[in-house]
Design a protein around this nucleic acid. Structure first.
Lengths: 243, 243, 243, 243
DNA sequence: GTGGTCTAGACCACA
DNA sequence: GTGGTCTAGACCACT
């Protein structure tokens, strides 16, 4: 939303190690790697990310200082993911950015709603099965988390949740849209989920509604359920902030 | 939800001059600078883009080689935007990418529809006035282009068209959404429009419908009209490709 | 004595990177750097040529695009000289420029002949020794090239040949003359030699005659032998072109 | 005669105005423009030299400060060439550079000798006529200068002399050789001639010998005479320096 | 006051 | 310690 003549906005060079840092942080925070897990080796990371080991090291170093991982040397060592610590700082951040939060939810409603609508007509049977399986796993995880509210369990749920939403976006078969969903989620997800832990206990009902609509190829219903789900989340967060 | 383990995808360092190149190309192709216009001076561009002159020059050099601009030296000189050349190659490209074209339109329908809906409730009076003025200018340009179908006139129309759509997106007051609209339009880069010249002569009626709905703050109608408008364009292009 | 009034001829600014390009190209083509060799590092070149790295890079970039060198990054990397490719194009060039070739040989006869004459009276014992050693190395290289006619071996011979001729010119102790010889040789750029490979296998006898005369301080004989040698080369080339 | 690895020597960027300055200075000093003459207008010079007026001005300004020209404004004005002033400084210069002077003469002997030899076989009748005419004019100028030893007359002789030598070099029909002669002369000529004014009174006899040999197509004689002539000049200069 | 070129120094990624 | 890129500033030539 630039106002500069010609729509030109400043260009920012991002160093490779920052990009790597972002990716790793995001992977950890979104639960793709969970506390106690070992990240791939430096060499593997370097190859997966198509950068040199130097760059990976630079990112790892920052993660270590942040306490997100610990580096254990020697045989059986590696980069061990730590349980994250959410402090008051995160909350303060959120409060300061209420407009941004509102915008982010609005945007999610738009793109995820649209994704659900398209997915309803385009999903394959195979995709449907996978989504069902995810749903089931989430239920299990949710039950487990009710008893054991360690961050570990919460994060496990989050990881599955993320996969579910992205799975729908992928079933919509529109690259730009998938990217938009993915983007919207990565902008927003992690602080929110992490903060209010298991509060989303009714989330899975919503998920089920969405998936049922998609199964019936009812695009409008799918979109509506998805939007309702996201707006639920929004309300939960907002009421929590108003505490 | 990429297929790589841990959701890690290769990192790509993008050189600043490539980013600048992208921005400039986009500005020109979306009609923000029109043939005959002079781009801001090297020094101004450098400042606007927050990079050094060297970087700007690297981008300018490519644009020059591509024939998008010519460079004139000395006082009163500068970077002069050239009239683009639409050749059979562009058409061939389009044909090869029919799926991509469909996806691009789908995406536009989603994001521009949503933008129109939000704009209906959020636009200021001032924005409304500006959009009205743009509509009027487009009518004038359209009439002129009916008599004088030079690329110049057509491009003038496109530039206004672009401003209109982006204006609505801006009135929606959601940065991510604005970016998405902007992105969607430049992907499809509306030079495509130039191919089928004035065929869009009913575009302005659609524009008027959209704006009327926005004026009445009727979000649903605004979204519907915008979507209908984009689908019109899609149909025009597709029938032209089926020729 | 140009035809313009007042003997004034257009002035041409030559960019530093073009001068650098010329020097590097010449160094490579005259065999001072041979295929497989690594050029001095960017920083060293910059210092040697008394320009900034930027300028060196501009020249290197062209050499890379021309395929004369390849760039390898990282420690142990650098600019690696490639084996030149002599194609039909080179031959066509030569044919088109028969007058230029004749002139180039005439000029070489003049300046290299004079250089040999002066060298006979001015060479030091030390220079003589060095020239002898070069001669010996050339013999070895020549024999090797008879068995193994790879471009590599041929070019090795050329490099030594070049050193020999330039060594004589240097022994003449006249800066202008040295420059003239150097210039004459690089104009005719002796890669031409590479075309007809080992055909010059009697070159070394001629070289020996020249050096013997220089050793005896017989300027006239030295000049005569050198001129005969160059005219031999000329004849070889011309008969090859007449094939 | 560089000793740097790879034969690389520092590159020097020469500003356009310096090149222009050189050309103008050389034109004046070699007598192409004589004291009292008006140089071409700024505009004309700019066109002839293919540079902008700015650059010409920069050069003119230096010439003015050096006293080589005076600038007269208004109608009938222009750049008026002044009689040069040769001071003791020039002599001192020469003394310090005895080796350079020797080398320069050696080089002239080589290239001008060779030029005369080639000219003998290649000159056209037309060229011969022109050279004869030059010779005649030189005689007239020489006689005049015997009575009136003003710098003006001396310079007139020099200008013709220069044309004569370059004319022979051109008749040799070898571009490299012509350039070499031109170069050799411009390095050396002017200070020498200017210093000892009319002392070269027997120069014309030598010129005649050279031209006669060229007329008879006797290359060897032409070369010999030219070399003798140049060596005469050398001796004259050296004895003058030994004074 | 525009573009064209160069410089000196810095930081980075690479191996 | 290599190449790759960028910066900030300077001077120049053009019109």
């Amino acid at each position: 939303m630039s106002t500069a003549p010609g729509g030109l906005s400043p260009v920012r060079q991002i160093a490779a190690h920052e990009l790597v840092l972002d990716q790793l942080r995001r992977s950890i925070e979104s639960g793709q790697f969970r506390p106690g897990d070992t990240l791939p080796s430096e060499r593997d990371l370097a190859e997966m990310l198509a950068v040199s080991r130097t760059v990976v090291r630079a990112a790892i170093y920052v993660l270590e200082r942040e306490g997100l991982i610990v580096v254990r040397r020697g045989r059986g060592g590696g980069f061990i993911v730590q349980a994250p610590v959410y402090d008051a700082g995160t909350e303060r951040e959120l409060r300061k950015n209420r407009v941004a939060v509102r915008d982010a939810f609005d945007y999610r409603v738009i793109v995820e709603g649209a994704a659900a609508r398209l997915a309803a007509s385009r999903r394959t049977a195979r995709e449907l099965t996978q989504l069902r399986r995810l749903l089931k796993n989430m239920e299990t995880a949710l039950e487990a988390s009710l008893e054991d509210q360690t961050p570990h369990k919460v994060i496990e749920f989050q990881a599955l949740d993320s996969e579910f939403h992205l799975g729908i976006a992928r079933a919509a078969r529109n690259p730009s849209l998938f990217e938009a969903v993915s983007d919207a989620r990565s902008k927003m997800w992690l602080p929110v989920g992490a903060i209010f832990g298991r509060l989303e206990d009714n989330a899975n009902d919503r998920h089920e509604d969405v998936l049922d609509a998609i199964e019936k190829k009812d695009g409008e219903a799918a979109a509506a359920c998805m939007q309702a789900h996201i707006n639920d989340t929004r309300r939960t967060l907002e009421s929590w902030l108003k505490r």
